[in-house]
Design a binder for these strands. Structure first.
Length: 614
DNA sequence: AAAAAAC
């Protein structure tokens, strides 16, 4: 009860200060002002020294060392002694109830066991012990072994508990301290490695500590996020947003998502209500920037997820526009994290342009984790694929659990192919739906929901669903059409075998896939899968045909990209030099393609990790 | 070659 008035007071104090008497009726309260109870705090109570220039932060390295008494306040976590005391209980908060924070964890912590085991059991934690991890760079902060080793703050710790994260994944163990130290990072990490949490925790924590009292400029209709997370697909952005909201629950840090295909007005409204962390796809963000509805001048954290994917998709111009040609602070004055599964020269270039004195991190995939996925390859002629699929689904049906049919994800190569296969399945009595880029966003989201819920246990998808998407409980991934790229294959099969559950991946192979034969059989061998003799023969043939073999074939510590002739063309060692600034970087060891993530089939690929770790 | 992504 007193809390309510406290909050209200706090808000009006903040408003008065922020509006400067200008009659601005914005209800947005910067995060560093939110977590304080008004009775004792006011603007003047900001951490000592008052306003620190925001730009002093990233390279300073020491900004975390100061007293951090501006969060975990009594009004917040201490509360009535019960956990989650603060926000939940208020009946009208600083926002006057207009945007009551929905509990992203569902109704109550205590009901979480209702449907079987908690999400995180079954993870083979021991498998994490011997994951190869390589870092390079100057003064790399040591990894942590537990979340408790890191001072993320009570609110965040509580959310980690709610997420049931027991121990940090390798990418988290390394990334979080690096990031908390204010360092830039280029990381080889893929879906399933826990990277969303790895970059969200430090961002949220940093924003909460945000000692910068620098106010957002007074631009009533322009949102000024402190952190930007870019990702290649709408669904991935949406998923990151969902995760980030869990991590930020009751921290006062506001997360907003913006992507195309959805009505922009709602997103604009959300933005107007204030945003600390903006998750976005590049196209929509450019739109928002051009409308001046978003300004990047306050950005302190930038995370680029699936960077190689974004470049594949032709986003480089938009990304460069966003990062270099708008009003975002330059490298060194912001903290940048670049995540990519592979390191072709385009990515190297991006890294040397976007990052400052960065640390390079490559996390190997979890030991023998692909053991959790049984991979089968079957020789199927183009014309036989449908009937073959029908057989598989029938067999699957027999295995279904809880009276529900197990979820089957079917990958095809084209959007038309997806539609026609879906139509065929449906007209043959199989409940199927489809997701691809020709469908409206509404249809895509509906399809995904319907699939996840089990209402439509068969989902036909193009590669839009291959990467990053977290669909729990997929029992079977069928590569109806194999991709041309082994990385895509790895991503696709990674949709199953999650959360420590076993998964099955079946591929239909025929002459059309010759180019994949070699890398596919290598991958399967590495994962202790049975490679059919006929596939080995295809592989042997293809290795001479010069098909699309894997570059270098190297493992950890492959080719040095600077020795790649195509790389040094037009300026020997340009990138090497660029990356070497300060002696960091993806220098030897992680080649352009021949390096870690590329050849190791997902250097950090780690299926068998629960959804929340993505 | 196809996929994805802003209106």
């Amino acid at each position: 009860m007193s809390m309510r008035t406290s909050w209200a007071d706090s808000v009006s104090a903040a408003e008065n200060a922020a509006a400067g008497g200008g009659g601005n009726r914005s209800t947005y309260v910067p995060p560093h002002l939110r977590n304080r109870s008004a009775s004792s705090d006011s603007l003047a109570a900001l951490p000592q020294g008052g306003p620190a220039p925001v730009n002093a932060a990233p390279t300073g390295g020491n900004r975390w060392a100061g007293p951090r008494n501006d969060y975990n306040r009594s009004g917040y976590s201490g509360g009535g002694g019960g956990r989650g005391g603060g926000w939940n209980n208020r009946s009208g908060g600083w926002d006057r109830g207009r945007d009551r924070e929905v509990n992203p964890f569902g109704d109550d912590d205590s009901t979480e066991q209702e449907s079987g085991e908690p999400e995180n059991t079954g993870i083979n934690f021991d498998a994490y012990e011997d994951i190869p991890v390589e870092t390079s760079g100057d003064n790399v902060p040591p990894p942590v072994n537990t979340f408790a080793d890191i001072d993320l703050g009570d609110a965040l710790n509580e959310n980690i508990r709610r997420c049931k994260y027991v121990r940090p994944t390798p990418v988290q163990r390394h990334t979080i301290p690096i990031s908390l130290a204010g360092r830039d990072l280029m990381a080889c990490a893929q879906t399933g490695s826990g990277k969303t949490a790895a970059f969200c925790f430090p961002i949220i924590s940093g924003i909460m500590r945000g000692q910068s009292a620098q106010r957002a400029p007074r631009m009533p209709r322009t949102a000024c996020p402190l952190a930007l997370i870019l990702s290649p697909t709408r669904e991935l952005s949406s998923q990151i947003h969902d995760e980030a909201k869990k991590f930020a629950y009751q921290t006062g840090v506001k997360v907003v998502v913006a992507y195309g295909g959805a009505p922009i007005n709602q997103q604009l409204r959300e933005l107007e209500r204030g945003v600390d962390i903006l998750v976005a796809t590049p196209g929509r963000l450019v739109d928002l920037l051009e409308r001046a509805r978003v300004s990047l001048q306050m950005i302190r954290y930038l995370a680029l997820d699936e960077a190689d994917r974004m470049l594949d998709m032709g986003f480089e111009p938009q990304i460069r526009k966003i990062v270099e040609q708008m009003d975002m602070p330059p490298p060194g004055l912001r903290q940048t994290m670049l995540f990519s599964a592979t390191f072709p020269k385009e990515i190297q270039r991006l890294a040397s342009d976007f990052l400052s004195k960065y640390i390079f991190l490559a996390v190997g995939r979890v030991g023998s984790s692909t053991d959790l996925i049984v991979q089968r390859v079957e020789y199927v002629h183009e014309t036989d694929k449908r009937s073959h699929l029908m057989d598989l689904i029938h067999a699957q049906k027999a295995n279904g659990s809880h009276g529900k049919q197990a979820l089957t994800l079917v990958f095809v190569e084209t959007k038309k192919g997806a539609d026609s296969l879906e139509y065929w399945l449906c007209s043959n009595g199989f409940p199927a739906t489809t997701i691809h880029g020709d469908r409206t966003q509404q249809e895509r989201e509906y399809a995904l929901r319907s699939f996840k819920s089990g209402n439509t246990p068969i989902l036909v998808a193009t590669d839009v669903a291959a990467r990053g998407l977290d669909i729990p409980h997929v029992a079977h991934v069928v590569n109806f059409d194999l991709p041309n790229d082994i990385d895509d294959y790895v991503h696709r099969i990674g949709r199953t075998g999650r959360a420590g559950k076993s998964g099955l991946a079946t591929a239909f192979f025929n002459e059309n896939n010759s180019s994949l034969a070699r890398s596919l059989s290598e991958l399967m061998q590495e994962a202790n899968q049975e490679v059919p003799a006929w596939l080995s023969r295809f592989a042997a043939k293809a290795s001479y045909g010069g098909g699309k073999n894997r570059r270098g074939g190297g493992r950890f510590g492959g080719r040095d990209f600077r020795r790649d002739s195509s790389f040094s063309r037009g300026g020997a060692d340009h990138y090497g030099g660029g990356n070497m600034s300060g002696g960091y970087g993806a220098t030897s060891g992680y080649g352009a393609g021949g390096g870690y993530g590329a050849s190791g089939y997902g250097g950090s690929y780690s299926p068998g990790v629960t959804s929340a770790w993505d």
